[in-house]
């Protein structure tokens, strides 16, 4: 049992943990692993933002750029991430993460959700170059696959 952070630090960590590197008073022994997996999440977010900007009409649709971003997302799902998620690097045992301990109790389900994400990413990569409407339609399942894991295994802010 580690010393609980102050409420302020917890709020700050919660506010920044999703995408930014967390600032906590105490460094986790799993800082490298947590940084690595959060970096992978940031790469997801960056590439999805390329598609999202087109889906929202903030930038004109560009088939080549959409395909490149979608391929990156599909590639990211292929990383072997096992070493980034060591036992004990959950948010009850260490700092700077919102990953719930349940994630480690349900590895089969986590892997299944990971496979579902890869499938949704492949579906996006297959249609991202086919025009705005097809790309937009693939955004929902992709977001759903991201959310499936966040719903079950990430501490809400």
């Amino acid at each position: 049992m580690r010393i609980r952070p102050t409420i302020g630090a917890a709020l700050l960590a919660a506010a920044t943990a999703a995408l930014a590197l967390p600032l906590t008073a105490q460094e986790s022994e799993f800082k490298a692993q947590i940084t690595a997996r959060q970096s992978q999440m940031r790469l997801y977010a960056f590439n999805i933002s390329q598609l999202g900007a087109m889906a929202k009409g903030m930038v004109p649709y560009d088939a080549a750029a959409a395909t490149a971003a979608a391929n990156n997302i599909a590639t990211l799902t292929r990383l072997n991430a096992a070493a980034m998620w060591p036992a004990g690097s959950d948010n009850f045992s260490t700092e700077g993460t919102r990953a719930l301990p349940e994630l480690w109790d349900n590895m089969a389900d986590v892997q299944q959700k990971g496979m579902a994400l890869a499938k949704a990413a492949d579906a996006m990569a297959a249609v991202a170059g086919n025009g705005l409407d097809e790309m937009r339609a693939a955004m929902g399942p992709l977001g759903g696959a991201c959310g499936a894991c966040h719903k079950a295994y990430r501490q809400p802010q």
Binding site: G144, H150, K151, P156
Partner: peptide, 28 residues
């Protein structure tokens, strides 16, 4: 407005984090 509609459709926030917790169910 476009950010909110995107969030309600895909769960992606303007920063392209995705909804979690019970809100992910609401988005479904």
């Amino acid at each position: 407005q476009a950010d909110l509609v995107e969030y309600f459709t895909t769960g992606f926030t303007p920063e392209y984090d995705s909804a979690g917790g019970h809100m992910a169910v609401v988005i479904e």
